[in-house]
């Protein structure tokens, strides 16, 4: 499993690297203080800051490494493992560099951006550890395309069966299919928003959350069915609609899990670029006003 390999890559080799780096940084930090309060301006502060800046550059370089397939500089898996551990170490190293001092300034802005990047990374790590398992469980081994193909078939079948029923049933089922929403905007994808509607007899479409409305509508027709064939059709239709409901649930859940799996990157990547510029400005401004 990828997530095991990610954290336990080569016996968590980079965990140990990070711990050694952290211990070194802690010692550096502790040797400050008798001259002036710990901050980025002591020689220890400069060293910690340099380590932090180099780490940020290297961590950013994962984006390049991921895309260069010909390189022989270690596996992407190893790089990602190191990325996680050293990124976590960066959080502490940068905090020590700052000497826990914050203010409304460029320096803290760079720090804050770094925090956003690292914590979005933590969320990404959490998602990569959890969601793939949930996704594959939800799909039961199939692919998303298969779920959609099934949905498509069920749509067609439902339409054709509903045509054989009373007109209002036909309208309700056709409208429920037409007005089924899946995914959509950011909120709808991440929180399985369901704006589905169906036409209940006449008038404006009504809510059809989780397709329950149309199922109930059809089910209510069942006791009133007069001919055996009508009841059979309705029953068949209910089975189809319920299967459709189940498939839609799976697809919604799939969209949601995949959405959360990717969501963090929309913070992680853009903020990383902002961080690179803020970091450069931080370093340059420090030496402009040396």
């Amino acid at each position: 499993m990828i997530h095991r390999n990610l954290l336990l890559f080569r016996g968590a080799r980079y965990l140990w690297w990070s711990l050694v780096l952290l211990i070194g940084s802690g010692v550096l930090y502790a040797t400050q203080g008798n001259v002036q309060p710990p901050n980025g301006g002591t020689w220890q502060g400069y060293v910690l800051g340099s380590i932090g800046a180099l780490l940020i550059l290297w961590l950013t370089f994962l984006g390049v490494r991921k895309r260069s397939y010909k390189t022989t500089m270690g596996s992407v898996q190893g790089w990602t493992s190191a990325h996680v551990y050293l990124g976590t170490a960066l959080l502490i190293i940068a905090t020590l560099h700052a000497g826990f001092q914050v203010g409304w300034n460029l320096h803290t802005l760079a720090y804050a951006l770094m925090i956003v990047v690292i914590f979005s990374g933590f969320f990404g790590l959490y998602s990569y550890l959890n969601n793939p398992v949930l996704i594959s469980k939800n799909r039961e081994g199939g692919s998303r395309a298969e779920l959609f193909a099934e949905l498509f078939e069920l749509d067609k079948e439902s339409r054709s069966v509903s045509q054989k029923c009373a007109p209002e049933v036909g309208i309700a089922v056709a409208s429920s299919i037409e007005r089924t929403t899946l995914g959509g905007g950011v909120y709808a994808q991440l929180f399985s928003g369901d704006e589905s509607l169906y036409v209940r007899g006449t008038g404006a479409p009504v809510r059809n959350i989780d397709q329950q409305g149309v199922i109930d509508f059809v089910a209510e027709r069942l006791p009133r069915a007069q001919k055996g064939i009508e009841a059979a059709n309705l029953q068949h239709l209910i089975v189809l609609l319920c299967r459709r409901q189940a498939v839609l649930r799976r697809i919604r859940r799939d969209i949601r899990l995949r959405g959360w799996l990717k969501m963090w990157l929309y913070f992680h990547i853009p903020v990383t670029f902002a961080l690179l510029f803020a970091l450069t400005a931080h370093i340059v401004s420090t030496f402009v006003y040396w």
Binding site: R144, F148, A149, G184, Q189, I255, Y266, P270
Partner: peptide, 23 residues
């Protein structure tokens, strides 16, 4: 039939979210 998925926006990349302009 599997291309039926394209009838829906099922990926965050199809929303207003985007990495490059945000960056």
């Amino acid at each position: 039939a599997s291309e039926f998925e394209s009838a829906f926006r099922t990926d965050l990349g199809q929303t207003w979210l985007s990495k490059r302009p945000a960056a």
